[in-house]
């Protein structure tokens, strides 16, 4: 009896595992009416317990995109910046540790209300490096927005 059930169970488990391995998601949502075009200076809040220095990756990517970015701990409102970035990174182990999900919020520096959110989710077989995940999320959020050029 057990011999008859076992192959069926194995197939079901394999299907479930295979489903879990092929999930890819990259989204960005803007708050209705939110305008990111005036943003130039961005403060990246280091997530408590982040020992992968994701705030540094975000800062580097923002700088590459033309923004003036600084990073550091969470501060009392209001922030001295045009926008504040917060993030949540989730990691998983499958042979090695990899970043499963990265969510980045662009927030109002006065009220901390979310103006936009980007999310990148890639499971083990289609895993991306933290740099690629950061690129993907920020590119999606700021897709149609170029930083304001301040002429001196």
């Amino acid at each position: 009896m057990v011999g008859k059930i076992f192959p069926g169970l194995l197939v079901c488990c394999a299907l479930l595992v295979a489903q879990g391995c092929s999930v890819n998601r990259a989204t960005a949502t803007m708050a209705p009416g939110a305008d990111l075009s005036g943003i130039r200076n961005i403060y990246v809040v280091k997530e408590a317990g982040d020992d992968h220095s994701i705030d540094e990756l975000i800062k580097m990517k923002l700088t590459k995109m033309g923004y003036t970015a600084t990073n550091g701990p969470e501060l009392p409102l209001p922030y001295n910046a045009d926008a504040v970035l917060t993030y949540v990174d989730k990691w998983m182990w499958d042979m090695t540790m990899y970043m499963l999900e990265l969510t980045v919020h662009v927030r109002n520096p006065q009220t901390n209300a979310s103006l936009a959110v980007g999310n990148s989710y890639h499971t083990s077989l289609s895993r991306k490096t933290p740099e690629e995940m950061t690129d993907e999320v920020l590119s999606n959020i700021f897709r149609n927005t170029k930083p304001t050029v301040v002429s001196k």
Partner: peptide, 19 residues
């Protein structure tokens, strides 16, 4: 957390824009 916006389509004025 959600963001809501109610707009008067006659003149584009935002009646409410809040999280």
């Amino acid at each position: 957390e959600t963001a809501w916006k109610l707009t008067d389509l006659k003149d584009g004025r935002a009646v409410i824009s809040e999280n």
